[in-house]
Amino acid sequence: MNAALTLSAASSAPSPAPSSAQSTPLRVWAVAGLPLLLAAWGVWGLLGQVDTAPSEAELIHWGAQAQARDEHATTVLRNLARNGLTPAMPLLGRVLVQRGDARSVAEGRDWLQRAAQTGDTTAALQLGKLWFKGAPGLPADADRALPWLKQAADQGQEAAAHYIALILKNGSPQTPAHPEAAARWMRRAAEAGWADSQFLLGQMLLHGQGVKADPMEARAWFERAAEQDHPEANLQLLLAQTHAELGLHRQADSEAERWREAQHALKHRPEAP
């Protein structure tokens, strides 16, 4: 056979099959590596989606995880807020304030304020309450609370009326006491159904604070608050019955029932405004 034929035969001959030792790594990669690569791609894709435009359900999920002190979830929320996602701002703010340390409270306050400045009514209410009550590293300041509470009230957050009433009832360094205005704000909150407001309005009516004294209307508000298991309202009615006041009469069975209701209410206090 001449050289040309030899060369042609050699070049057309099939390549030898790989040994089992050589093919095993390829098979392992095909079975395990590719799914791992696809899974990793999916994880990164999900993270990218969450970081840019999460659904409401995803946002709620991250908020719940952050509330449980999951630092990864907190970082996700923080990145979302920094990227301008408005719903993430008050959520992150509430989570941080609830942690209760001064550093978290300060950052949480800032996020609540940013959200309130965009028109978020819940954030304005939370920020006003935070300034009103104070927190670690954040002394209570009624004057700083008042503008945020008024913003919230103007936008339909009736719970804010309760705190505005308290500020106006007691006064503050920059806000003189205004009992009449306090009574109007407290009535607004009471009519919205807040038991604390109903009880306090009853007290104002009973003692003529900012409003003409009206014991019978006071009793009506105490009864509305008591229906919501407000303990002080129950005790007020019990005392009135014991002393035959507010149009109530002494009755042993009725007084015993009111006492049981008052004790029950101490364990089931209604939600505060």
Score class of each variant (00 low, 15 high):
67 Q>A: 04
177 A>M: 11
162 H>G: 00
20 S>W: 15
117 Q>C: 09
253 D>A: 07
76 V>I: 07
191 E>M: 00
130 L>G: 01
40 A>I: 09
49 Q>N: 04
120 D>N: 05
67 Q>P: 02
81 A>R: 04
4 A>N: 09
196 D>Q: 04
96 L>S: 03
261 E>H: 13
222 F>Q: 01
119 G>W: 15
63 G>V: 07
88 A>T: 10
208 G>V: 05
224 R>D: 00
186 M>S: 01
107 E>Y: 13
37 L>S: 06
61 H>G: 03
117 Q>V: 14
7 L>P: 08
238 L>S: 00
49 Q>P: 02
203 Q>R: 02
142 A>H: 14
248 L>A: 05
97 V>L: 10
203 Q>K: 02
225 A>C: 05
98 Q>K: 07
200 L>M: 12
106 A>K: 08
1 M>L: 11
179 P>D: 05
247 G>H: 15
195 A>E: 12
200 L>P: 02
134 G>N: 06
248 L>S: 05
198 Q>V: 00
9 A>T: 13
270 P>Y: 12
12 S>G: 11
143 D>W: 13
237 L>Q: 04
173 P>L: 04
48 G>K: 13
196 D>S: 04
248 L>N: 07
212 K>V: 08
118 T>V: 07
92 L>V: 08
111 W>M: 01
101 D>F: 13
135 A>G: 04
94 R>C: 00
155 Q>S: 12
266 L>D: 01
114 R>H: 14
221 W>E: 00
115 A>G: 02
68 A>T: 05
186 M>K: 10
112 L>M: 06
1 M>S: 08
3 A>Y: 14
44 W>C: 01
86 T>L: 11
8 S>A: 13
139 P>A: 08
10 A>R: 11
251 Q>A: 09
203 Q>D: 05
218 A>V: 05
112 L>Y: 09
164 I>L: 10
232 E>L: 13
18 P>Q: 06
92 L>Q: 03
15 S>P: 07
260 R>P: 02
264 H>E: 00
157 Q>M: 07
42 G>S: 08
136 P>N: 05
235 L>I: 09
109 R>P: 09
41 W>K: 04
137 G>H: 14
53 A>Y: 14
246 L>S: 01
220 A>I: 03
226 A>Y: 15
88 A>V: 10
252 A>T: 12
239 L>A: 02
13 A>S: 14
94 R>I: 13
170 N>A: 12
7 L>N: 06
40 A>V: 08
89 M>F: 11
179 P>N: 08
129 K>D: 06
72 H>R: 08
44 W>N: 03
125 L>G: 01
253 D>H: 10
225 A>N: 05
111 W>R: 12
125 L>D: 02
268 H>Y: 15
100 G>Q: 11
28 V>S: 02
147 P>A: 01
247 G>Y: 15
88 A>C: 03
206 L>I: 10
20 S>E: 14
48 G>W: 15
146 L>M: 09
58 E>M: 06
100 G>M: 11
49 Q>V: 07
29 W>N: 03
258 R>V: 12
224 R>I: 00
73 A>G: 01
181 A>V: 04
216 M>Y: 15
235 L>H: 10
9 A>K: 14
123 A>E: 12
248 L>R: 15
268 H>C: 05
70 D>A: 03
216 M>A: 09
228 Q>K: 11
242 T>W: 14
200 L>T: 03
198 Q>L: 04
67 Q>R: 09
255 E>Q: 13
30 A>R: 15
218 A>C: 04
185 W>A: 00
25 P>S: 04
195 A>V: 06
27 R>S: 01
15 S>L: 13
153 A>R: 09
